[in-house]
Design a protein around this nucleic acid. Structure first.
Lengths: 196, 196, 196, 196
DNA sequence: AATGAATGAGGATTCATTCAT
DNA sequence: GATGAATGAATCCTCATTCAT
């Protein structure tokens, strides 16, 4: 039998560097969905499959689970930071953006709680960093003498509200988030995404 | 199916049926610790090891992970129910007992949040039942016109406080729990276990 | 879930995708041998070991035991079908090929009997399908007015002969198979494999 | 806390030696059913459960799986022997009794085939002994010059018929058994149990 | 730069067998 | 003599990670 020196089947297209960015985006999107649907412990292979890429690509972009989680959260955190940096930003407005992310991104919530999450100390550690960035962004717009001015109350409140955000539908989650802020006596601006 | 081959070495002591209750207690204790340390997804084998029993014993007592989790939580919930049933129980008093369990039992918190936990729908389902028992116990002592009388605010508040209870030490967790109740404007009695 | 810890030692060669076909063939061969030696309930791990591959490869190729069994039998059945499709095929000739497979492949016999096998209803169900394919192939060459023309006699006879095929050596098994056909008064062509 | 020196629950009645025979019978019956329903590889614990006794009792009566299987078959074989020993026994009559057992006792068939059964060499060995007893019984009434007189044909035929006995209902199994004997050109007496 | 097969450690689960009571 | 809990080896199966192509 003659040895084939090539392959019988066609090798999938290799679109070169262009594809890299596209793949990365697809992976982050897939990761966000998979983490939301199956939790932060979902098989990484599921993410690669959903993104339509091989396992290897996933590992090229995210060497470990923590990196994948971080990538998912990065965008949430950055939007909150941007909301706080906007010229006319208000505390209530930033809270509204924060709340929007709590409602939309299950993984985001998971991460805010990650310092309690047993196991996975690497994720926990990373989450702390993100959490601090969120706090900095909020505090930047926190009016003096605000109900949450005390050193720990700001972070505590965010954590508390994030725990309230449960429920199967977006509407239900928003309802609960607003109820939670109300119970805390904190005014929140419109719940919305920020910029792009 | 290939046969199990007998063991060459000697078999460890078999303390007979007497050991059953002892083993069960050891397993529940071990499960509580392991779940607290490694999360609800910790290997069940770790529980058996910590309890000093074989894998089979664990499966005899708890046919699946849900059963093990349920056993751990049962005691938390029951104590809260008992606190509410006591002759002279007050709402603040029951909240104090509830808070004690939030502080002591990481798994308990995990379960209160389980309806958000992705995956493990069986645990989630069971948790809902427990959550309802806690609500019933609290509502029993809820004074008319209380700040949390509205239909959803009670459960929401408990969830919110539970999210606040983080931190490495008992003291830190208690501090945060009390801060959380304060932010909610709710008075809490002494944080303590109930009965035995 | 605790993380898998990396391995310290070196990883064996990964021959890449090229190995896939080779591995699959090795697995089928190993499965045929293991099933013959230890029965259809033999540990799947034994098959992987015999094939010289990891457990995962086995599961990649055959998601469950039924799939492995099916792969082993597929070849037996196909050869019988091909023998029946050959231009100059005769009933006796096809029976000869069938008999060859009865003699060579213990698993094949097991499967023909699978509808009696208690338990493993999935294998049983699959076996029925295969059994029908064998019947169709035979009936295609069954001369009108043959001793086995009656609706059930054909399948019944094959089952009966298959039960006769026992014994440690190939020769003994062939002797018994032929004796069985003789007792049934059925002429059989040369006992041989068909094609490649 | 005071130590209980006795047991809280009542200990199940210990009916003494009388119970032993009863238990043994219950175990054999249970074993026959379980083996029929789930195959010869069924968990032994299922037999004890079905018989309503503890695991220990099963092991007292049957030290291993082979012993349990043997006990189940002993009665089948003995009845065939008795049928052959009866004053007015005929070959066809004994075959009728044999056929009855093939139809009624799935385990019996399994055992006749056991010498092909891979694995479980202990059961296989035992089955050979039983098979020889059956052959002796039959040969005792085999008329000279019978179609099955040749040295191997008798055992072969029984094996062949046993393979034919499949089907969900008693009626179907009997129909096939009789069809099988007919195909072999062997006359069979009434299909019935022998004595008690 | 992508693919996807292979590896193999680890965790879940079952069951034969023993033995204190 | 009976009970049934305990043991733990063996099997099944999953998935993080590597790597030839």
């Amino acid at each position: 039998m003659m040895e084939h020196t090539g392959r019988d089947g066609r090798r999938p297209a290799n679109d070169g560097p262009k594809a890299a960015a596209r793949n990365r985006a697809a992976l982050v999107t897939a990761a966000r969905e998979i983490f939301a649907e199956h939790g932060l412990e979902a098989p990484l292979s599921a993410i690669a499959r959903r993104a339509g890429v091989g396992q290897g690509v996933l590992y090229r972009h995210f060497p470990d689970r923590t990196a994948a989680v971080a990538a998912v959260l990065e965008e949430n955190v950055r939007q909150i930071e941007q909301a706080a940096e906007a010229e006319d930003a208000t505390f209530a407005g930033v809270l509204g953006v924060l709340t929007w992310h709590l409602i939309e991104s299950a993984a985001f919530i998971g991460l805010l709680h990650a310092d309690r999450a047993a196991g996975r100390s690497d994720i926990r550690a990373h989450a702390l960093g993100l959490s601090e960035r969120v706090e900095r962004a909020l505090r930047r717009r926190l009016p003096g003498g605000h109900r949450l001015s005390a050193v720990n109350d700001l972070v505590l409140s965010v954590a508390m509200v994030s725990a309230a955000v449960t429920g199967p539908t977006r509407e239900e989650r928003e309802r609960r988030a607003l109820a939670a802020w109300r119970l805390l006596g904190v005014e929140v601006g419109p719940v919305r995404a920020f910029g792009g």
